[in-house]
C-alpha cells in the first residue's frame, strides 16, 4: 500500500470555541503507484485531507501510512523531514511560494533543503525547468517577471526537483489556459507511468478524473462519502448532482444517448472511450470517418 488512512479526523483550533472538524473519520487505501483523485464541493475538506499526507497537519485522531512512514497524533516534528521529501506537495495556487532572486535558485531551494549540493541542485533545476515546459533561458530571470501560468510551472518544477515518490496536487490546473492544463495533466501522467509516482490529485475537473484517475474519493462536509473507480463513482449522476458534483461531459452525452434507447456495456467516461464505443457499433458504415 502506498497510502492508507485509518479513521483519520482533523480538527482546526481544537479545544477552543472556534474548533472546526474539517476531516472526520476518513479511511481509505491507495495501492503502490496508484492514482487517486479527490473530488468534492468547495469547503468539503479536500485540502485539509491532503495536507495530512506530509504531516503539515497531524491528524487529531487516527493513523496515516505513507509507504514506510507512519503519522499519528503523537508523531514528533523531528521525524518529519524525510516524509516531507518523500511526499511532494503542490498547493493550491503554488505561485505564491516563489521568493528567490532567480528561477533556478527557487527550483533548487527544495533539493538544497533536503541536503543536495548547490551544484547538483542547480543542474537539477535546469532539467526540471524544461520538464515543466519552460525554456532553459528562463533560469536566470526573476520569478516575479513571469505570467501567472509560468509562475505555476516554476513552482511545480520546484516540487518535482525534490524527487518525491508521492506527488500531491491541489487543483494544479485551476486558472490555466486549456492547452497549459492539458500539458500539465499529461506531465503528471507521464511521471506516474514512467517513474511510478503515486499521485493524489484534488480537482474540480471531472474530465481529468475520468481520464487519469484509477481511484476516486468523494468528500462532503469532511466525510468520505464514496470511494471507488471512476466508473463506480460516475455511474450515478443524480447522486453526484445532489452532492454538487457532476459527471464528465462525455458521460453526460452517453447518458443522454441511453435515454434515447442506446445501451452501453460500460458507460464511456472520456471522449475517446465514447468515440471507440460508437465506432464499434457501426463498424461498416462510418469506419473511414472515425
Amino acid at each position: 500500500m502506498a497510502i492508507a488512512f485509518e479513521h483519520v479526523t482533523y480538527t482546526y483550533q481544537a479545544g477552543t470555541p472556534m474548533a472546526h472538524t474539517a476531516v472526520e473519520d476518513v479511511s481509505f487505501q491507495v495501492p503502490d503507484h496508484g492514482y487517486l483523485a479527490i473530488i468534492g464541493h468547495t469547503g468539503s475538506g479536500k485540502s485539509t485531507l491532503i495536507q495530512q499526507l506530509n504531516a503539515l497537519y497531524k491528524p487529531s485522531a487516527g493513523t496515516i501510512h505513507v509507504d514506510d512512514f507512519t503519522v499519528t497524533p503523537e508523531t514528533t516534528n523531528a521525524a518529519l523531514k524525510p516524509l516531507r521529501q518523500h511526499v511532494g506537495m503542490v498547493f493550491q495556487f503554488p505561485e505564491s511560494q516563489l521568493f528567490e532572486e532567480t528561477i533556478r535558485q527557487d527550483i533548487a531551494f527544495g533539493p538544497k533543503n533536503f541536503g543536495m549540493s548547490e551544484a547538483d541542485a542547480n543542474a537539477l533545476a535546469d532539467e526540471m525547468l524544461t520538464t515543466v515546459g519552460l525554456d532553459a533561458s528562463y533560469a536566470d530571470r526573476s520569478p516575479f517577471e513571469l505570467s501567472g501560468g509560468q509562475m505555476r510551472r516554476v513552482a511545480i518544477a520546484g516540487v518535482l526537483a525534490m524527487k518525491p515518490q508521492v506527488l500531491v496536487l491541489d487543483e494544479p490546473t485551476a486558472g490555466l489556459d486549456p492547452q497549459g492544463r492539458q500539458a500539465m495533466m499529461e506531465l503528471f501522467e507521464r511521471l506516474h507511468r514512467e517513474q511510478g509516482l503515486t499521485i493524489v490529485l484534488v480537482t474540480h475537473q471531472m474530465e481529468d478524473v475520468a481520464q487519469y484517475a484509477e481511484q476516486v474519493a468523494v468528500m462532503r462536509e469532511g466525510k468520505l462519502i464514496k470511494f471507488g473507480t471512476p466508473t463506480d463513482v460516475f455511474a450515478d449522476p443524480d447522486w453526484l448532482r445532489a452532492n454538487q458534483l457532476d459527471v464528465p461531459r462525455a458521460a453526460q452525452f452517453a447518458q443522454q444517448l441511453r435515454q434515447r434507447g442506446l445501451t452501453w456495456d460500460t458507460l464511456p467516461l472520456t471522449a475517446d472511450q465514447l468515440a471507440d464505443q460508437i465506432a464499434a457499433r457501426w463498424p461498416a458504415k462510418g469506419a473511414d470517418h472515425v
Binding site: 495536507q51 506530509n54 503539515l56 523531514k81 516531507r84 498547493f91 505564491s96 533536503f114 516540487v159
Partner: peptide
C-alpha cells in the same frame, strides 16, 4: 491566513 499557507508550502519544501 496567507502567512499560514506560505509557511505550509515552504515547510513542504523542507524549511524548518
Amino acid at each position: 491566513d496567507e502567512a499560514t499557507k506560505i509557511m505550509n508550502a515552504q515547510r513542504a519544501r523542507g524549511v524548518d
